[in-house]
Amino acid sequence: MIRTILAAVFIFGGLLLFAVEIYGVNRFNFVMNRMHAAAIGDTLAMMLCMAGLIIYSGFNFTSLKLLLVVVFLFFSSPVSSHLIMNLEVETNEKAHTHYETDAIIDEDDLLEEEKNKTEG
């Protein structure tokens, strides 16, 4: 009984955080803010849900698999965030208007753009 209640508390906490994540992803306008919101779901909300399920199922082989899911996402989710961020910084042409970047601005590209503007 206590175990069920504890598991329910964990799972509902996770679901609440998922709701916060979805609200944040739809509320913010810029990529970085959105990713900040999405990271909540990737880490804490997912972990809470899995912890709740592990407590609910007891400590057996199934809960070991659930633990492996947590470990896997703990490795892979930051990497995917990092790659998306990299791509955003390198491809967004208006990046410097939103945030400071270390990305090297290609001068040839800028010159070409100006040329296109004057020609067109």
Binding site: F72, F75, S76, V79, H82, L83, N86, L87, E90, T91
Partner: peptide, 20 residues
Amino acid sequence: KYEPESDNILKTVAKVLVPV
């Protein structure tokens, strides 16, 4: 430039994760 092949973080993590 847009290929993630040269990314060290991805390489390190993939070395661990792909066999798993």
